[in-house]
């Protein structure tokens, strides 16, 4: 692979509890993996309070780490730090047999189309001789044009249909809308969580499968993914890629802070 960039990343998530909690169990999907367009080197996970970590791979192929902090604590902080060597403009070969692409071909909880999306697809879903890639690229651009980026009007429970009805949302919503449309067009597509150069939060975009390859498309930024993108996980929609899942005993309320720094070496 031709290295385009060498990016240093630091993904830091901290939780604060108003009252100490205990028996805190967690599963974290925040560790990037190497593939055809990114090599991850020197990746370290640091936890505060420290605890033994175990690793698993879920059925989507995402790596996750999990553990438990038994004793009472009022703060929990994870830091994932490393270097990614990324290539721009390269698609990842799809090694999954066609049958198993099925979960990415049909509507999921967040991407089920209602009247608004169906009507929109009616207007934009005719292909003028375009292949899957060109068609998806056009949708990618169309969504960017027709949506307004606005924070605070949607939340993690908002579906593609809800966000589209209001024409406003954030990257999660843009990605869900893109997925809903691609799947209506029978193009296998998946939700991606990752980091991009400079930004302070995690980012979401999509990958579409065409000609046995996965192509990254980012409707929020009206572009194809390039060397500034570091991918962390993928799934049918937001739900499959939740970064932090946790349960604990305690009555306190939880606050979360995330900071991501990605810079070129």
């Amino acid at each position: 692979m031709q290295i385009d960039r060498t990016l240093r990343f630091c993904y830091r998530m901290s939780l604060g509890f108003s009252e100490p909690v205990q028996k805190h169990q967690f599963a974290l999907r925040m560790i990037p993996q190497s593939d055809m367009r990114q090599q991850i080197v020197d990746c370290k996970v640091v936890l505060e309070p420290a605890c033994a970590l175990k690793e698993g791979v879920d059925s989507f192929g995402n790596r996750y780490v999990y553990g438990e902090i038994v004793h009472p604590h009022s703060a929990f902080c994870v830091e994932v730090r490393g270097t990614a060597r990324t290539a721009g403009g390269i698609a990842v070969l799809c090694e999954i047999p066609v049958m198993s692409l099925a979960p990415y071909r049909f509507a999921s909880q967040y991407t089920r189309a209602g009247d608004a999306l169906k009507a929109y697809y009616g207007q934009n879903g005719q292909r003028a001789g375009e292949d899957d890639y060109a068609f998806a690229a056009r949708l990618n651009h169309q969504i960017y044009q027709d949506m307004v980026y606005k924070q605070g009007v949607t939340d993690i429970h908002t579906t593609a249909e809800e966000a589209f009805s209001d024409r406003r949302g954030v990257c999660q919503d843009y990605a869900h809308i893109m997925l809903a449309l691609c799947r209506m067009a029978d193009i296998p597509s998946r939700y991606v969580v990752g980091m991009i150069e400079g930004e302070g939060y995690s980012h979401a975009w999509v990958e579409i499968c065409a000609d046995q390859r996965w192509y990254g498309m980012d409707p929020t930024n009206d572009k194809m993914t390039d060397g500034t993108y570091i991918k962390i996980s993928h799934g049918r929609d937001y739900q499959d890629c939740i970064v932090n899942r946790g349960t604990f005993r305690g009555t306190g309320t939880q606050t979360q802070q995330v900071s991501i720094v990605v810079s070129e070496e």
């Binding site: 879920d58 059925s59 979960p103 049909f106 049918r236």
Partner: peptide
């Protein structure tokens, strides 16, 4: 695959 009972985690 579009059934609400389908669980891809079980693949």
């Amino acid at each position: 695959f579009a059934s609400s009972g389908y669980m891809p985690e079980c693949e």
